[in-house]
Structures are given as structure tokens and as C-alpha cells.
Write a protein that binds this DNA or RNA. Structure first.
Length: 437
RNA sequence: GCCCCCAUCGUCUAUCGGUUAGGACAGCAGGUUCUCAACCUGUUAAGAGGAGUUCGACUCUCCUUGGGGGUGCCA
């Protein structure tokens, strides 16, 4: 029997990190076993379901490379099936109508639990048992005629021929009800696997209050899809060896449910960021540049950048960029006048002799071969002329031409900026930051 | 309250009865360096507690404690 799994989100907003991890694990399971990965949109909540949210789900899945194998099934198209199932259960005596609680809302349909102890095997948690007295009958169709989650979910899973249900831990208790439903409906019971929750530092389910919680947020912050995919895969699962950064194919090959942990996992954004840096550093330059461009495009100064300069900057900065958003600090490569770091200017530039030093260096640079080596030599000879130690003036130069204290090597930085621009910056700094021309 | 699940460094994890309990992130120290990162080297740090089974328990059983989930005409 071929493996068929599904991701069944409700289109009611953003895609939560816990949900997408469930999707990832389903996807991996399907790919590892050569099965099908299906998508079902559970849009029965008409109040909250929106077409935009459907697009958000589709977008998140595409971004992460979670391709599905059949046309998505919209739960709202399945009402007929749901009611048919309810009727069938009614006819078989497995369900009954009742004005539950006597609230006068009218009659709803309740499913009659078998009245015997039940159990099922969870691929992650092992054998789970429940005593008959701990399971109560439950509503499957509301008094307004709408099917409840349990019924709709099970009927749709039967319709889609789902063989393995891989979902969040919070559904463990529901599973006994679902198994009973399958049996009453005469359908083969699928295999179940319940994934541990992603929690915050307090051990509570990770939510938007704990930081980035939605796929879109991670994307906007400059995480790469591959890095997020890889990291999420490692929350609650490991290949069983000391390997963390893995290609998708490696993960698919190694992925089995018996290696999924059953204890909750805490989200560690720092580790994600570290991994993201590894991914960004490994990206081909043009792909990296495309990612950067996407982020800079949201900034007023980042939209129409000189292509040649932009690519030079990307090449220079790639290895030191753990997140795409950090490219926002590259502004000094592109925009004049500089935004000076006041503290640095005060501490480093407003000192005795700096003015003369900058003028000397400027003049040496003006006449040198403006390559990295040439620039370095020019600075060395300036230092010699000024009686300064080697490299002692580098930081002064950096602040003079970039306005800030951190960045790539100063020789490379000057080289990328070019002679004309560098010299102009020296002059601008001399006049605007150090007073008299 | 009742039912269920979970428990190894701060965090993510390896270990499927015998290990100096390994790796990664974070931290710390050092190296490299013109700065900040990156990188390299080193290093701090763990089996919640208690019984039992066993020649031998992180590993198996039970209890305690702690955490989480469920207990809806939500999903």
C-alpha cells in the first residue's frame, strides 16, 4: 500500500511555525517512502476562513518547497460526504440525536463511543490506551446542521485515502474518538504519529508573543527557506549522527518516524540564525544577491542600485551576513552623505592630529594604484610619513569613509567604493565632521 | 478534579544495559585580523529525586516531583 499523507490547515491567518513543521514532517515522510503528500484546506469555518489566508498557506508551502501531489481538497466542498456519514452512523445506531444539555438550541447529533477500552499504536509515542469510562460520546453535527471537526476531518481523510496521520501532540486525545469513528464507518484505521510541540522558554506552546512565529515573518527577516526547513527538521528529530546541516535529499533519505522525539522542543532563534548564516555563505553569488535585492527593495535607498557596485558589495559582504536583513547596514556603500556614528566620530576622529592624518592619507590614495594591494601600500606609506604604527589608522579611515566602525576589511571596502568616491568622502568628512576645510 | 503524555549540558540533540555520556547553538578563553563578524583551537556545562530488576543502569519497572496536553454544539 502506498503512503498517503496530508497537511490540513485552516485558512484563518498566518501559517504558524508549528503547523508548517507538521507539514514538513508529513512531506518528508511521503518523500522518504515514495508516497503522496496531499493538501486539504479546512475552510469550514466560514466566519474566519479567507481566500487571502489560502494564498498565504500556498505561498508558504511553495517558498519552503513543500510540493503536494494532487489538487488541494477544500473541506467546504465535502459537506455532502459529511452528512452522508452522519446519516450512516445514525442508521447504524452509532449516533443519536439529542438536545444536549437541554439548552433549547435544538437537536445535535452525537457519536456513540463503543463503550469498551480502546487503544492505538502511535508511531512516535508507542501504544496508547484509554479506558471506556474515560471516553464520552461527542457531538459530530451541531444543531445548526454543520459538521464538527472530528467528523469532517475523519471523513475527509477517508475520502483522500490517507494512510498515515502525522500531526501535533495536541490531537492525541482526539485520536481515540477518530479511531472509533473510522471503525464505525467501516473504514481502515490509518497509522498515527503525534509530533511533539514547539514550545517557548516557559514550556508553553510557542506563540507569536514569543517572537517570530509565522513563516512569513521568518521570510521577511531574511531567513532562507532551506535554512528554516533544515532547522525545523531538527526540532524533535535527528538523523542519529552528528550531522545537522543537511541537504534536502539527505534529510529525506534519513527521515523516519521512529527517530522523532516525543518530548517538546524549544525554539532557539540563535541556532536558526547561525544555520542561516551557513546557508547564506554557501549560496551562489547571484542567488545571494537576489535575496539581498528583495530586502533592500523595501528601503527608500535600496531600489535602484548601481548593478556593478551592488554585485561587488554582495561579493564582499556575503560571508559576513547571517541574515538578509543585515544588508540594510550596507547603506554607506551606496548613499551620500554618510550617516555618521556620532560616538565613533567623537571618539576617533575628533582627536589631535587626525585632520592632518586624513589629509595625508587622502593625498597618498589620490596617487596610488587603487587596487586592494595598492591601497594597502598607500596607507602604509602614509603611516610611515606620519610616524604612525602599521594599521593604527585603519579604523580612523573606516569611519571617515563609511561613518561606522564595523564592516569588511578596509582595503577591500575602499576598493569597492572606488577612488573618486573615497576621496570625496575624505573631503566631506574633513569639512563636515572636523570643521575647517 | 479526572484522563493522557513528557523528563540527558542554558537550548536542540546522540546514546537503543557496560562510553572519559558525544555533537551543535549559546557562553567563556585564546589564535587569526585594520574593525565587526566569519573561521580555527581550547574550555565551562547534563542523566530531576527515590526505590527496585541486574554482575552492571541515563537506558527496564514502580513511586515522587516538575512540565505539558486533553477534558467544548473550537480546531
Amino acid at each position: 500500500m502506498s503512503v498517503r499523507v496530508r497537511f490540513a490547515p485552516s485558512p484563518t491567518g498566518q501559517v504558524h511555525i508549528g503547523n508548517i513543521r507538521a507539514a514538513i514532517f508529513n512531506w518528508l515522510f511521503a518523500r522518504h517512502n515514495g508516497g503522496q503528500f496531499l493538501l486539504r484546506i479546512e475552510d469550514t469555518d466560514r466566519e474566519r476562513s479567507t481566500p487571502e489566508a489560502v494564498q498565504t498557506i500556498l505561498g508558504a508551502m511553495e517558498w519552503l518547497g513543500l510540493n503536494f501531489d494532487e489538487t488541494p481538497l477544500y473541506q467546504s466542498t465535502q459537506h455532502g460526504q459529511h452528512h452522508e456519514a452522519a446519516e450512516k452512523l445514525l442508521a447504524a445506531g452509532r449516533a443519536y440525536k439529542e438536545d444536549k444539555g437541554g439548552t433549547g438550541q435544538g437537536e445535535c447529533i452525537l457519536f456513540r463511543m463503543p463503550g469498551t477500552d480502546m487503544g492505538f499504536h502511535d508511531e512516535i509515542k508507542g501504544d496508547l490506551l484509554k479506558k471506556a469510562e474515560d471516553m464520552k460520546d461527542f457531538v459530530i453535527v451541531r444543531s445548526d446542521g454543520s459538521p464538527v471537526f472530528h467528523l469532517a476531518n475523519v471523513v475527509d481523510d477517508i475520502t483522500q485515502g490517507i494512510t498515515h496521520i502525522i500531526r501535533g501532540d495536541d490531537h492525541v486525545e482526539n485520536t481515540f474518538r477518530h479511531v472509533a469513528l473510522y471503525q464505525a464507518l467501516g473504514a481502515p484505521v490509518p497509522r498515527y504519529a503525534h509530533l511533539p510541540m514547539i514550545v517557548n522558554a516557559q514550556g508553553k506552546p510557542y506563540s507569536k508573543r514569543d517572537g517570530a512565529a509565522y513563516v512569513g515573518q521568518f521570510r521577511d527577516m531574511g531567513y532562507s527557506a532551506d535554512a528554516l526547513f533544515n532547522y525545523l527538521t531538527l526540532l524533535g528529530w535527528s538523523p542519529g549522527e552528528d550531522r545537522e546541516k543537511m541537504t534536502r535529499d539527505e534529510i529525506i533519505a534519513a527521515f523516519t518516524l521512529d527517530r522523532v522525539k516525543s518530548s517538546p522542543a524549544q525554539m532557539d532563534i540563535r541556532k536558526l540564525t547561525h544555520m542561516n548564516g551557513l546557508y547564506l555563505a554557501d549560496l551562489p553569488l547571484d542567488i545571494f544577491a537576489a535575496g539581498v535585492r528583495r530586502h533592500l527593495a523595501t528601503l527608500d535607498w535600496g531600489q535602484a542600485l548601481d548593478e556593478t557596485l551592488f554585485m561587488k558589495v554582495c561579493r564582499l559582504m556575503q560571508s559576513r551576513t547571517p541574515l538578509f536583513v543585515q544588508s540594510e547596514s550596507w547603506k554607506y556603500f551606496f548613499v551620500d552623505p554618510l550617516d555618521y556614528d556620532e560616538k565613533a566620530v567623537h571618539k576617533t576622529l575628533r582627536k589631535e592630529g587626525v585632520k592632518a592624518a586624513l589629509e595625508t592619507i587622502r593625498d597618498h590614495l589620490a596617487g596610488c594604484d587603487f587596487s586592494e594591494v595598492g591601497i594597502q601600500q598607500a596607507i602604509r606609506s602614509s603611516e610611515a610619513a606620519l610616524g604612525s604604527g602599521e594599521g593604527k589608522l585603519n579604523q580612523t579611515i573606516r569611519i571617515a569613509v563609511t561613518g561606522v566602525t564595523t564592516g569588511a576589511g578596509i582595503y577591500e571596502t575602499l576598493c569597492v567604493l572606488g577612488r573618486e568616491r573615497s576621496l570625496t568622502r575624505f573631503n566631506n568628512t574633513l569639512t563636515t565632521q572636523l570643521g575647517a576645510p
